[in-house]
Nucleic acid binder design. Structure first.
Lengths: 195, 195, 195, 195
DNA sequence: AATGAATGAGGATTCATTCAT
DNA sequence: AATGAATGAATCCTCATTCAT
């Protein structure tokens, strides 16, 4: 286990330690020392792989976001209806939250606590997420799968529905079945709650 | 205006300066010095009114949350239908976001950046918000106003819908009409988006 | 003695501590902590008066150079012959070395050890000194007080003669009489050493 | 060329790299890493030949001083007059400065930047240089070649004249003819500058 | 012998907080 | 009550040196 790809091994250990510590303490209260100890290495070693605390954090966010998107990109989406897509995306989202509580806390919680320099980068991340969802929704409208609602508002509603789960899951330890929950939320979004 | 109730005047000035600075810089990057300068007072004076930076921040959050709730509590809710209530609450929420961008940023953005000691307090704030909404929804279900959906999930969906607006409004400078937007969102929640 | 001009008092104490420590350890080996202790203040206080170690050092050099020049600028030079001027300047230079050993060590020793950013500033200081001397010498030539030698070379010779005294005086504790020594050196420069 | 006397080849490469880097950055700002890269070897290898950064620096200074003295010791001096000797030494000195700008900068600039432990060693180097010159001058006086001046002062004057050239040559890129310059300086020292 | 990844002691700097005025 | 000069604990980062390979 020590003989794994050398650089990769250490780097990965640091990232994992970073995830753990950043998710517990947040960016500012995380200490490089603690990350090093958690990774089982010396303080200086972190700087062999990352130029600064900020850089380490940015790499972790970027990797987390990638992991998140990859976890959502398992199947070919274009063949599906909007309803199926939303349900699958939500299922994936909930699964990710459940399986990667630390990552989730960082991605959804810490994005904005960054250096001034990272603020814009973090905002762009958010806007991109929004744009992706809007494209999916616009396609559904174009295909005539749903009635003609303001796609911007619907995007925010859907994203908000997704986002509101992370805190109950990672902090309050809410236990849900991702499949079932996604199905119910999607049902509400499509059929509404009126009698 | 400077000669008003002495302690009250200074205290309020500090809180307002804190809102401005905390919302721009976040908790950790906000400097007591800057808050003092913004408030037009000496650095030491802050400590006459607040025991610490953390305390000042907590007071600001608490006050902001109060302001927020008060802005939502203008009319008697019990006489209204759930649909009316959600629409009114959402309208109020959006109005608050638009009119109090600084406060909004603090309440929705900064909650987590707090000291370990404030973490629990902040979480309770969030849970309480969730509980309030759930009670409203449960009442709607009890009254038979909506079909029988999982009220916990619906709560998260509604709260998420509310929350997803703050970033576009305060950061991306999204311009919306609160009334109209609330109406459309409520419409989606009640009627769904299916054809 | 504590009631002297407040800001001036502390600032001056820091400068004097800096002179002592910088002259003993050199720029790089000087520790801000030691300077603070020597000044009888807290570490952080230095930063109330100087933005950085480099800044403190630069201020000390600049002040030292000023002190040096002021010590040389006591009488009206224009009325004197070149010979008198050189003798007087050398006397002053030697007096300064003897009376300000710490300052001397910094000005003549440490000038180049500075940050990359200060390097140019330090070089300009040296060139300026050279220029001042050259002007004096050129004037002497123009007035026909000395024979026609390459003023650039003579400048370097004179400056070198001045400079070569600081180390024996401040490090080897060479004891000399400034008046007498200056007289003898000037005599050599004017009359040469040939039989 | 890489297969020459192993230890000697590497050792020499390190010294040359050291000369380059130390002369550009000074002792403290020089990085062992950069010296290693410049020498085309691994960082750890330096420590096979030198026990520490300080040791490497000391060796370089010592070697530089040797090179300097060797460059001045080409011909038999005893047969010459003091005037010839000073002129020849100065010529050699100026040639050395011109041809070994890096070494010059180290020997004349960096001597003092050393560890506390090297300080004394560095001072002895300087005193030895002074002593050598004084002996030459004393001999000249004994032989009755020059008038009876204080040999200590004359020594400092001559050494100063020598030393004041290195900065203009290596930093300001002053271009001079060593022969001619040495001749003029010697002429001034012997004949003085009076009309 | 040669290497360079790993280390951690060491130091400049920041900033919340105190307290004498 | 109000102040702001003074403080020093706390933290990021550097880089000479080591040592397993």
């Amino acid at each position: 286990m020590e003989i794994v790809c050398k650089s990769g091994g250490k780097r990965q250990a640091i990232i994992e330690a970073g995830i753990k510590v950043f998710s517990q303490k947040g960016f500012h209260d995380a200490r490089m020392e603690e990350i090093a100890v958690t990774a089982g290495i010396g303080k200086g070693t972190i700087y062999e792989y990352f130029t600064s605390k900020t850089h380490l954090f940015q790499e972790i966010i970027a990797a987390s976001v990638n992991t998140y998107y990859e976890s959502l990109a398992t199947i070919d989406m274009d063949a599906l209806t909007l309803r199926e897509r939303i349900q699958i995306l939500l299922t994936g989202h909930l699964r990710f939250c459940i399986e990667n509580k630390d990552l989730t806390r960082i991605v959804f919680w810490d994005v904005e606590i960054m250096d001034e320099e990272l603020k814009e980068w973090g905002n762009n991340l958010r806007k991109e997420k929004q744009l992706r969802m809007k494209e999916i929704i616009d396609q559904g409208i174009t295909r005539g799968e749903i009635r003609n609602v303001d796609s911007e508002l619907l995007t925010l509603l859907v994203i908000g529905s997704f986002a509101s789960f992370w805190a109950p899951i990672t902090i309050d330890a809410l236990v849900i079945d991702p499949e079932e929950t996604a199905k119910q939320i999607t049902d509400i979004i499509f059929n509404g709650i009126k009698l």
